Simulated assay, not measured.
Amino acid sequence: MRAPAAIHKLKGNRLTATASEPVRRKRRWLRWLLALPLLFAAGSALQVLVLRFVDPPFTAFIALRQFEAWGEGDFGFRPAYDWRDLGQMSPNLPVALVAAEDQNFASHHGFDFKAIEKAQAHNERMIERAERRGQPVKRLRGASTISQQTAKNLFLWQGRGPTRWLRKGLEVWYTALIEALWPKRRILEVYANVAEFGDGIYGAQAAARSYWRKDASRLTPAECARLAAVLPAPRRYSAARPGPYVSGRANRIQRQMQQIGGTAYLATLD
């Protein structure tokens, strides 16, 4: 008489086990989903820490430009990129980059909120003026710091359309990591090596060789100011053949280089 009851109990246990299997699978997936942000945070922190001491062999922007060329059928395209330590390039170039792009570089912690407010006010005026005249908006002002630009060039992408906001969020995270884990001199050194100074031309050495057939250590203040002047639109403007806009901006940058202390400015960085 007990056998049928035992069989029924066994069947009930099997049914319970079968019913609970999807629940266990769901819990495993939830645990993985919860762990992903922690894994990303740890992995990206390690990535940034390693690059404090190891010079990057390439960047996200360089890789994307190579894939873009291949997609266009240009299989012979090769980005120009040749690392030079800060002491192996003209000190005028990092000073020009600070003068042109981020004069509060030494004092901020990755984000220049005063510059952001000024840029927003300027852009609102430019948009209103363009709307009154029925013309397209020209030369909106950005407020990205050198730290933000370094994070974007190294790890991310340009980000247009729906992916732009995702890139912005990641840029904030990587910028915070860079500021926390790197000294200011390392940030400036990396930026001077990975910034795009022309289509497929990345960094001080590649720019010096491509435009003036010289080493980055021999760049003059005027040439460094021109390189800084083409940012952030190096595919539109040329440092080698500057038009009125680049020439005028380069002259202003040279004056600003003197205002922030010239090459002695580098001694103030940690």
Rank of each mutant, 00 (worst) to 15 (best):
S147A: 15
Q120K: 14
R28D: 01
P221S: 05
W157P: 02
S210C: 12
D270E: 14
G110R: 03
E128V: 15
A228D: 00
Y191I: 03
E101D: 08
P162Q: 04
A143R: 01
I178K: 02
R24Y: 12
G87A: 13
G159D: 06
R186E: 04
S107F: 08
L97T: 03
G12V: 10
A80C: 11
R160H: 15
G261T: 02
N193W: 05
S144C: 08
L97S: 02
L266R: 07
Q256V: 03
A180K: 06
I116V: 11
P22R: 09
Y211L: 06
W212D: 08
P4A: 10
L38T: 00
I187Q: 00
S247R: 15
H122V: 04
K168N: 08
G243N: 15
V137L: 05
R31A: 07
Q88E: 14
A3M: 10
V230S: 07
F77C: 05
S217E: 13
R2M: 15
R255V: 09
A206C: 03
G73A: 07
D215P: 03
S144N: 08
A115G: 10
M126T: 15
R31K: 10
R84E: 09
D112C: 06
R31W: 02
A207R: 03
V48E: 00
N123Y: 04
K11M: 15
R27H: 08
Q259S: 11
P94Y: 00
W29I: 09
R31M: 10
A80E: 11
P242G: 13
W182Y: 04
